[in-house]
Amino acid sequence: MKAPSAYYKPLAIGAPAPFREIPVRLERMIHFVPPHIEKMRAKVPDLISKVDVVLGNLEDAIPADAKSDARSGFIQMARDNDFGSTGLWSRVNCLNSPWFLDDVMQIVQSVGDKLDVIMLPKVEGAWDIHYLDQLLAQLEAKAGLSRPILIHAILETAEGVKNVEQIASASPRMHGMSLGPADLAASRGMKTTRVGGGHPDYAVLSDETGAGTRATFQQDLWHYTVAKMVDACLSNGLKPFYGPFGDFSDPQACESQFRNAFLMGCLGAWSLHPTQIEIAKRVFSPDPQEVAFARKILEAMPDGTGAVMIDGKMQDDATWKQAKVIVDLARLVASKDSGLAEVYGF
């Protein structure tokens, strides 16, 4: 383990100093783009104003014979567009693939000044983060970059979930984590072929009463993992995200899964299809009524101490902290979304 005095030192001569705190940005949805497809790249200029993060995907869902085209397509996409306040990310191939090294070296050298985050798949321990951390520092120094590129880990193996706390604290370059339910299901030996969401057979029955039919209550397959990821992220100042929801034909189930993740502390989710952009925007923006009530709490307790009654409910310093989370998020949303700014009253 590094000494505290060395934790924030650059890992290469000439590399930019690590962030002391992760930049505050609105990231309700991470929208995946397959950059090897020209017609999809052509949609990016219009997409930038509609999403919080544009991610060029180089890993899963990209055929092996299109990996190089995806890499060069992402570089071209980054060069051709001004992303403004919208984040630019890339999900590179996993560390043990034949494409990872070229992905990172070529992207950082070519468009590292525009890239905000590298999403690293199948992270299993702090050692994976340490390797990419050192490599990025060397490449940033070589490219003369003035700000560090952050790392976002995907939890999609049993080993990664087991080591989630060590992953979260592995580097000041860490941005956050996403749940990768499909690969995680395979790694755990789970008996499902779904990409995220629930399963009708994962349920509990109501007690037997002798009245005949017993009620069935479907459970959330991902509750434990999301909770563990949120705790690891928030205790280290990182951002937790729900990952993909693969059934594009069921927007109601997608919204339910996203909302569960939001209530548990996630700040956003992946959008793999245009219809999921609006779902993520709606879910990960706080409800206007919740914002209005939270503002009442903050106004009634300016210094966050004591206790007051509001609408028949007791509020104290603990609920003041909860209210501040909601209002702070609403202000961040309002800074980008003028429509919601008006609804929130900011």
Rank of each mutant, 00 (worst) to 15 (best):
K162L: 07
Q315D: 03
G160V: 01
T192W: 03
I310G: 02
L11P: 10
L88S: 02
I22C: 10
S72M: 13
V54Y: 00
L298S: 11
M177H: 02
W222I: 04
S206N: 11
M309D: 14
V111D: 02
A126E: 08
G125F: 04
L47E: 12
F241Y: 14
D52C: 08
P35Q: 13
A334E: 09
K122R: 13
A211Y: 13
W127P: 00
V291S: 10
F19N: 14
A6P: 01
D103I: 02
D69F: 06
K9W: 00
T213N: 07
M29L: 13
V123K: 00
R25C: 08
M301W: 10
R188T: 02
L11K: 15
F262A: 15
M77Y: 10
D52M: 05
A186Y: 02
H199Y: 07
R91H: 05
G345R: 08
Y8A: 03
D46C: 09
D102W: 04
L47Q: 14
V327R: 03
S178R: 04
L115M: 08
H130W: 12
G306L: 04
Q166C: 03
I37F: 10
P63T: 06
V54N: 05
V327M: 07
K324V: 04
S49C: 04
L145N: 06
A261W: 07
M301Y: 05
A300N: 12
E165Q: 11
V44R: 09
D113L: 13
T275S: 14
G237H: 11
Q315T: 06
L340H: 03
G212C: 08
F346R: 08
V51D: 03
N163Q: 06
V123W: 00
L332Y: 09
D65G: 10
A12W: 02
F217K: 09
H199S: 15
V333L: 11
L120R: 05
A126D: 08
A215L: 14
G198C: 05
R282I: 01
L267H: 10
V123Q: 00
L272P: 00
H175K: 12
M29R: 02
L139S: 02
L205W: 13
A15P: 01
E165P: 01
D207N: 11
E27G: 09
D303S: 08
V333Q: 11
P286T: 11
K324Q: 12
W222F: 07
E299Y: 01
L95C: 01
Q289L: 15
Y131W: 12
S249K: 15
L55N: 12
A61S: 15
M40Y: 15
S97I: 09
V104E: 00
V33W: 00
A232C: 09
V53S: 12
E59V: 01
N57A: 06
H36V: 06
D60L: 04
R194G: 07
L272K: 01
G246V: 05
E156A: 10
V204S: 08
H36G: 09
M29E: 15
P10G: 04
M40Q: 11
D220R: 13
V111M: 04
M314P: 01
S171P: 10
M177I: 01
I62K: 03
R295M: 14
F346H: 05
F74Y: 10
A300P: 10
P63K: 03
I118W: 00
V92T: 07
L329H: 15
R79A: 12
E342N: 07
F83N: 08
P16Y: 08
A269E: 00
